[in-house]
Design a protein around this nucleic acid. Sequence first.
DNA 1: CCAGACGTTGTT
DNA 2: GTCTGG
DNA 3: CCAGACGTTGTT
DNA 4: GTCTGG
Length: 221
Amino acid sequence: MCGRFSLFDMFGLEVRFNINLPESLVPSYNIAPSQEILAIIGGGGEQERYRAQLLRWGLIPFWAGDADASKKMINARAETVEKKASFKESFARRRCLIPADGFYEWKKEEGRKRPYRITLHNGELFAFAGLWDEWSSPRGETIKSCAIITTLANKLVEPVHDRMPVILAREAEAAWLDPRTELPALKELLQPYPPQFMECYEVSAIVNSPRNDRAEVVEPL
DNA sequence: CCAGACGTTGTT
DNA sequence: GTCTGG
DNA sequence: CCAGACGTTGTT
DNA sequence: GTCTGG
């Protein structure tokens, strides 16, 4: 699954995704659920440019009775995303890119967990396939939130964990955002990323606490 | 028909 | 809102 | 995802 | 054990 990632390479970000960054966005080595994260929406048709949008990580379906759903819905399974009540509407109409430069998975062994960091070669920026939604409370407060889609781990990640987030091929990003893309074509985009373009290495357990947001957590152990 | 759930991961 | 279970 | 808290009453 | 906060 994917419950932690990083996005600290802010310089390449605007050019790579053709966006203006939100003022309040700060680089982070250790991004956790419940935080406001950068997402990219728009594209396709008349819209010339993608838009950056901060979203709470943890999707609250628009019909939810309260906002507690967000504590659970940090991931959506690629295999079932078009069928689940909580995600189907977002899958059909509210897809987003979630930029990152690495993510973390924990390997469980002998009763303890060791964290690993997974990146593309050279720490290149990439985008998770994401879903978003907008929820309004009875009092009229609105919350925009999101989830990251997961799929089977590839050969590189599989020794650490059996699931991993969907990283979109760069040439698939536009199709993912395009409202005209048909559902079967969308599902085809949700594949495990090719392991030969990725790196996986153990990192310090300092990353375990989301409070430890510093460069040390991305260093090889 | 209405009521009630709506999720993933990991562990058992 | 929409699906599943009864 | 992991870490850390997990409670009420009454008083300031 | 389970929920909340980050």
